Amino acid sequence: MPDLANGKYVSQSDALRQWTPAARDVLVETAGVYGAWVTEQEVGHRVQSATGITTKQPADEWVGALLARVAADAVTRDEPRLASLCVRADLSVGDHAGSAPGEGVQARELQAAQDRLECYRAFGATLPEDGGQPQLTPRRSVARAAAPAKRVARERTPRPAPNGTMRVVVCTSCFMEVPAGTTCRDCGATLSA
């Protein structure tokens, strides 16, 4: 349960209500810099500092609900999806209610990159002469560039798990190593055996 600097406790919904404008401010500031993004942990730290309402819960447990509120507010203001500027610690977009829509991780990542570009344009970032391009976060860019070679090598030579009974493949959607089967247990993509 969140608490105030004076030691009094507040409900989670009251905390979220107070944190929402502070989170919007953080994201609008982030949108003012072309290519910028911010982590859930940083948003969590900054909204708690700005409001004086703190929690001992890890940011990844409550920032999704906060971003959903920011996203709903952006819709009422007819603004681009500000929540797309916030990424997880591993630099991937989340799957909370305010995140970019899409079937599968890769589709959400690509939509979030487009949404971030719209945010940079809407909130005054200095753009390159060509108007800017959607940019994946560094982790997603590296994974995407490395995916074709990695995927081909793993599909040709799947290796057994330590117990020798299960084959492992690399998911072509989220690039995680998973047991061969019909769907990826991480992102739900269909896999070949």
Rank of each mutant, 00 (worst) to 15 (best):
V63G: 05
L66S: 00
R81L: 10
D115I: 13
G52S: 10
A83S: 14
G64P: 06
V47F: 09
S84P: 03
A143R: 13
D60S: 08
L117H: 08
G132Y: 06
L67F: 02
A146I: 00
G35F: 07
T39R: 14
E29I: 02
V33N: 13
G64L: 01
A149E: 10
A125G: 10
R46T: 08
E118W: 07
V63K: 03
A59R: 03
G98T: 01
S99Q: 06
A31T: 06
W62V: 00
Y34T: 04
Q57T: 04
A74M: 13
F123S: 02
Y34N: 11
H45A: 15
A15P: 07
A59Q: 08
S99N: 01
G32A: 13
W19P: 02
P138L: 06
Q48S: 08
H96G: 02
V43N: 11
S84K: 06
A31I: 06
Q106D: 13
E61S: 07
E129H: 10
Q133N: 11
V105G: 05
A112P: 03
C119S: 13
A145D: 10
G124F: 11
V87P: 02
A50E: 13
V87N: 00
A145S: 12
G44A: 08
A125V: 10
W37N: 08
V33K: 14
P128Q: 11
A72C: 09
A31H: 05
V75A: 13
A125Y: 01
V33D: 12
K150R: 15
C119G: 10
L127R: 07
A50I: 01
G94D: 02
V142C: 00
A74L: 05
R116D: 11
L85H: 09
K150F: 10
L67G: 04
L85K: 01
R144Y: 04
V28R: 11
E61M: 05
L82S: 09
P138W: 11
R17A: 14
G98M: 01
A89Y: 05
G52A: 12
T126S: 15
L136V: 00
A36W: 07
D73P: 05
R121Q: 15
P21L: 06
E61F: 06
Q41R: 12
R144F: 03
D78K: 11
L67R: 03
V105W: 14
Q12E: 08
A23W: 05
A72Y: 07
V70L: 00
R144K: 12
D115S: 14
G98R: 04
D60H: 15
E42K: 13
Q48I: 01
H96V: 00
P128W: 07
V105H: 09
Q135L: 15
A23Q: 04
S84W: 11
S99K: 00
R46L: 14
T76Q: 15
G94S: 01
D14L: 14
A23T: 02
V47D: 08
Q57P: 00
Q135F: 02
R116V: 08
S49I: 01
R17L: 14
